[in-house]
């Protein structure tokens, strides 16, 4: 975890409707200094809308937007201490790399020598030293991306907003930029608000992940929390792969599903409360049939590179299992789950 300071941006009950469609249904969110926060969700979940409200390009219909405790919902974008890295970079095609980066400082009539220092320093930070005179339209996607980041960072914003900035890059470059972005964030020590629909991206870069769906926040937490302790079926399904099974909480630390009682570590549910259980495919062990908590037959095996994806059919359902050990189709196997790898969630209200 990065060292997080005070709350810098506060969203309180933010709502927004476009053409009769409710895009945001009451968003409450605190964003801290120094934090790398990711808004994660499928397209149309409202994550970009939140970003645009913070940037000032659109105004929320309801709720409050506080910046360092002061309501900024009526402040125009050019007066806000945030800068944006746009989805398609939005670099000015008529300016070279240097002038693109210097744009914000020149608008603010900063002294030329200071502009020069800052632009050079920022270009170095994003790894584009010596690219000053290049035509931005002739740069590669990754380089344009870096210019866009430099153009925003050079203004020394308190918060940097990034709207799916890696979406247009190929897989390998994406991975590189993820590492790089995280490094840049730690170096400049400001808050990054990052929007993506890519769960892997969110998990590997963020201090905090905000999972969204249909204009509502589903869960806020660290990547580890979000993955290991999803709060509902949506989060469990969206982040990673999972087996989701309906069941009952017999009592604290004992859950029943598929007519079998499993010891677990979850507490605080009502007796016999209906719940849903998440089993990550990599958390299920394949053992001898007589040692298994559940028994089933292997129906399908797919090689996935690092692991095999094995489907095991029990008399109740099919389980998806990730393991590095191959199994023959048709083998009878037992399935086992450690108590601390069973995660119990409240059933989702729809």
């Amino acid at each position: 975890m990065a060292d997080m300071g005070n709350c810098i941006i506060e969203l309180k009950g933010i709502t927004k409707t476009f053409d009769d469609q409710q895009v945001l249904r009451g968003i409450d969110l605190n964003i801290y200094e120094n934090e790398f926060l990711t808004l994660l969700g499928p397209s149309g979940c409202g994550k970009t809308t939140i970003l645009r409200i913070i940037a000032g390009f659109i105004e929320a219909d309801g709720g409050e937007l506080l910046f360092n405790g002061i309501d900024i919902s009526k402040v125009p974008p050019y007066k806000r201490e945030v800068n944006t890295v746009f989805q398609k970079y939005a670099l000015f095609p008529f300016l070279n790399v240097y002038d693109n980066v210097a744009f914000g400082l020149n608008i603010k009539k900063v002294d030329k020598t200071i502009v020069d220092q800052k632009v050079k320093k920022t270009l170095k930070l994003v790894g584009l030293e010596g690219f000053d005179k290049r035509d931005v339209t002739l740069l590669s996607g990754g380089q344009q991306q870096r210019v866009a980041i430099a153009r925003a960072l050079v203004n020394e914003p308190k918060v940097l907003l990034l709207d799916e900035p890696l979406g247009a890059l190929d897989a390998k470059l994406r991975k590189e930029m993820q590492v790089e972005l995280k490094k840049i964030q730690q170096e400049v020590g400001i808050t990054f608000i990052f929007v993506t629909h890519d769960q892997e991206e969110a998990l590997s870069m963020s201090d905090t992940v905000v999972v969204m769906n249909e204009g509502k926040i589903q869960q806020i937490g660290t990547p580890v929390d979000i993955y290991n302790e999803p709060e509902n079926r949506f989060v469990a399904n969206f982040i990673g792969e999972s087996n989701i099974i309906g069941g009952n909480m017999i009592r604290d630390c004992l859950v029943r599903f598929d007519d079998v009682d499993f010891p677990c570590v979850d507490k605080g549910f009502k007796e016999n409360e209906e719940i849903e259980v998440v089993l990550r495919p990599e958390d299920i062990d394949i053992v001898e049939p007589e040692k298994g908590q559940l028994v089933g037959e292997v129906t399908n095996v797919v090689f996935k590179g690092v692991h095999y994806e094995i489907m095991v059919e029990t008399d109740k359902r099919q389980y998806k299992i990730h393991t590095t050990d191959i199994q023959e189709v048709g083998t009878k196997v037992g399935l086992c789950v450690d108590p601390d790898l069973i995660h119990v969630m409240y059933t989702m209200e729809y």
Partner: peptide
């Protein structure tokens, strides 16, 4: 989005119009 970028970088309406 180029105009939005200009606003974002501190340009007023008039500056955004002329410069972009």
């Amino acid at each position: 989005s180029l105009i939005e970028a200009a606003y974002d970088l501190g340009a007023h309406r008039w500056q955004a119009f002329w410069r972009v």
